[in-house]
């Protein structure tokens, strides 16, 4: 049985990690693949670390949660600490360079650790609101789990009504997506 690609996304509430997981899951689903996305939803979801678990596979997916991720993305200091347990020697661990003084806390057992300046780039080159789209780009750049055009179609599906009002938003989102791919590939 082919192994599913397992992705963990964690950040502060409002960083949009759940939307990233949901859009990637939708993209994989429309491609005819199996996708399973489950948000964490403890009482702590209000004001705590938000974690999204995503699996994409060519075959039926087993349990909704899993022990180790193929890619683990942590976007805040608390998220870095919270996601350690999902990391092993096969994990690509991605974190944002703006998290200060975190070097000692990074998982030492990760297969590889990638630092990307997603917060900074989204703020300077795009708009802080497309930060999560940039992260989405980083995930597909690191895994190739869903083709770019599928992801664009899924974003279109979700935000199309906004793009109709303001076509520049489409450019902004797709630009951030491609820049995310670029960032993660440079980091390797």
């Amino acid at each position: 049985m082919a192994k599913a690609v397992k992705i963990v996304l964690a950040g502060e509430g409002g960083q949009g990690v759940q939307s990233v997981a949901e859009i990637l899951a939708e993209a994989a689903n429309t491609e005819g693949r199996e996708a399973l996305y489950i948000p964490n939803f403890g009482v702590e979801q209000r004001g705590g670390v938000s974690v999204a678990y995503l699996q994409i596979s060519d075959e039926a997916i087993g349990s909704p949660k899993f022990q180790k991720g193929d890619i683990v993305v942590a976007l805040s200091e608390r998220a870095v600490l919270r996601t350690q347990r999902y990391v092993d020697g096969n994990t690509t661990f991605v974190y944002d360079t703006s998290i200060e003084g975190i070097e000692d806390q990074l998982p030492k057992n990760a297969g590889r650790v990638l630092a990307i300046p997603a917060i900074e780039v989204s703020k300077e080159e795009f708009h802080p609101r497309v930060f999560n789209i940039l992260i989405m780009g980083a995930v597909i750049g690191a895994t190739g789990v869903v083709p770019l055009d599928r992801v664009k179609a899924a974003i279109e599906e979700k935000l199309g009504y906004k793009f109709q009002e303001n076509p520049k938003l489409r450019e902004l989102n797709f630009g951030a997506l491609e820049r995310g791919i670029d960032l993660v590939q440079k980091a390797q």
Partner: peptide
């Protein structure tokens, strides 16, 4: 259960 309630799949 809560997993089935909240997760998305096809």
């Amino acid at each position: 259960d809560g997993y089935q309630a909240k997760m998305r799949e096809s």
